[in-house]
């Protein structure tokens, strides 16, 4: 509890936090609205899943989430605050858990604001008759996107703890998120392409946003989010392991 309070104070008083949280919302909503405004629809069909389209901004928002999570760890190492932290609270795993809880809570709160606004903007910008998926699927896509951003925060936090350098950690996170889909596009073998789509954190995790043609997805929406959760768990495990085994 004491650890949670300490981590919350650090996050709250860090100068960038409120701007980054606002950035998550702004980036997600702005890119989503732009994508919906740019699309050319024919009558009732936009050629794409309208719900997924109205959440396009997740692509940009997740990068801001990654910055927030990486800075929460990396900032502490670069200023030497980490030594004070672990002297005051020697149970290192407790500190990591508290930090993960606080950062994820902040990200989920921002995402819970950004996602409904993006979806409402999509609803307003896209032709009404194209926006007709079942309500349960819309709810799943929205709630799933909030969870997706929370898991991205955990993934970034774990990698930053393992690497301790903000620059290297953010590079790794952005590489995992953005470069794997580009490499996937270049693979011509359909079986390999499917395997990559099933295992890459972004393409698997974003399956949660699909509301139509579910049978064409490389894996089911919740299974996709599960793959991302495995990535996040793996990164946190790696972070915990290096945290215990190394000097601060």
């Amino acid at each position: 509890m004491r650890q949670l309070h300490a981590e919350w104070t650090k996050l709250r008083t860090s100068p960038g936090t409120k701007w980054l949280l606002a950035g998550i919302i702004a980036a997600t909503v702005a890119l989503s609205a732009l994508a919906c405004a740019a699309i050319v629809c024919r009558a009732s069909d936009c050629g794409q899943d309208p719900v997924k389209l109205s959440l396009t901004g997740t692509l940009l928002g997740q990068a801001v989430v990654a910055i927030l999570a990486v800075l929460a760890v990396g900032g502490e190492y670069s200023t030497g605050l980490a030594r004070v932290t672990y002297t005051a609270m020697p149970r290192r795993l407790g500190v990591l858990a508290a930090k993960a809880a606080v950062v994820t809570a902040a990200v989920v709160a921002a995402a819970a604001v950004a996602v409904p606004i993006s979806m409402l903007a999509g609803h307003a910008l896209l032709p009404a008759q194209s926006f007709t998926p079942p309500a349960s699927a819309v709810l799943r896509a929205g709630a799933g996107t909030v969870l997706y951003l929370g898991l991205i925060a955990l993934l970034s936090l774990g990698l930053a703890t393992a690497m301790r350098s903000s620059a290297a950690a953010i590079g790794t996170v952005l590489g995992l998120l953005f470069v794997i889909p580009i490499l996937t596009q270049a693979v011509s073998d359909p079986a390999w392409q499917r395997h990559l789509e099933q295992s890459a954190p972004m393409s698997a995790g974003l399956a949660i946003q699909a509301t139509r043609d579910l049978q064409d997805l490389p894996l089911s929406p919740w299974a996709g989010l599960g793959v991302l959760a495995l990535w996040a768990a793996g990164a946190l495990g790696l972070g915990a392991w290096t945290l215990l085994g190394r000097d601060v």
Partner: peptide, 27 residues
């Protein structure tokens, strides 16, 4: 700040490419 700067650089170079190749309409 390295995290912000790396993200700014990657987002301005790689993300437009990714968006152009996948979700955005041709125009």
């Amino acid at each position: 700040r390295s995290a912000t700067a790396v993200t700014a650089a990657v987002l301005t170079i790689v993300l437009p490419y990714l968006l152009a190749m996948t979700v955005l309409p041709a125009g």
